[in-house]
Nucleic acid binder design. Sequence first.
DNA 1: GCATCCCTTATTGTATACAATTATGCATCG
DNA 2: CGATGCATAATTGTATACAATAAGGGATGC
Lengths: 214, 214
Amino acid sequence: MSRASDTAYAAIRSYLLSGNAAPGSQLTEDQLSEVSGVSRTPVREAVRRLESEMLLVRNESKRIFVADWSRDDIDEMFTLRQMLEGHAAQRAARMLSPADLGELERVNGELHDAVNQAEPDVVRFLDANRAFHEIITQAARSPRLAQVLAMLVEQPVVLRTARQYSVEDLKQSARDHDELIAAFKAGDAGWAKAVMGSHLRRAFHTFADTEGGA
Amino acid sequence: MSRASDTAYAAIRSYLLSGNAAPGSQLTEDQLSEVSGVSRTPVREAVRRLESEMLLVRNESKRIFVADWSRDDIDEMFTLRQMLEGHAAQRAARMLSPADLGELERVNGELHDAVNQAEPDVVRFLDANRAFHEIITQAARSPRLAQVLAMLVEQPVVLRTARQYSVEDLKQSARDHDELIAAFKAGDAGWAKAVMGSHLRRAFHTFADTEGGA
DNA sequence: GCATCCCTTATTGTATACAATTATGCATCG
DNA sequence: CGATGCATAATTGTATACAATAAGGGATGC
């Protein structure tokens, strides 16, 4: 993270995720250069990355704006994730190493701990959740799949989603992870894929239902 | 295409596709700057794009190399395309406008013309083929899906694949397109998805079988 | 002869100045 | 009063010089 373009990426990203950046509002390279403390050259690289992750968008004349995710956009994103992570889970079920499985169980322990508290620790839950999904993606040994998923699994939405979770939602999510591990242990690719599918689809509905009613 | 970074992208890309660039060989930003006739700044942007399309790769110390696609890489690519374009075809079957359908038939006419000649015109076939798939991708109205597919549908592989095609393979490909149009006219999403799936999977095997035996 | 260290060279990364493009506000004309 | 064109400002795009980092090669010691 020492390179300036990485610094810029991290700074801009966390600025976007902080919620202080109004969706649809314009940003300039100069502003972002100020915010991140590096010159425009690395900022431009960072912006390109964030564009490909769809946290930033450009208008017809190349000006930069904070992306505004509609409900349909989020639906679309979860649909693609369901398809691709379902595939990843399927492959992982066949290729998972014992070490991966151990790591998966460790991370899932973290996740359970975060949930089973008087006041659930959402940040810790999210960290463990991301790590869990990442292990599976990596275990699928498909570099292109991993790259594509990295683009889709962008956190502003995941974050918005998780904030809507009730304690019961969080617990159900943890149970899904338990079941995924069971499917992996059984080496049952179809099972793993199905669980991953319903896991992600439910996540979308949890979000959509709460968001709609709020 | 007037912007320098687009010029650089096109120039480098066509250089990579020309076959003069040995897979695994190193390239420097300076060289690419010479080749494309613009300064390193836009070249760097172009390189980033080509990296994300996996036509270029970097080693651990950020040096740039021509990507070397293994058989497994190509298998993986076609598998992902099958999944994603199958999904696109499914959606397109429900959302395709009459204008889209007309365009699809026009392009498919081109494709048939290219194939039904004494000596099939592979370049024209490829152009029509790309246009055909692109119409379907666009018709699915899923910007993220389109973006992801744009990354995967990279031509060096498609090119290598198409060169292996026998006349009969080309004709079968054209027949697949006919059947896709039929599925669209029937508004049958499942049919469209299935045809797209076998279409792409066969493309892989045509490639794999010939390549392996050559 | 071979390994190791250092100096040199090659290559990528960053900052900055300037060029090109696009937006904005104002004046003028109908 | 509204539209149109023009001058100006704001913003992105490009080139270039310099900085940082990594590779290569040769001398030196063993």
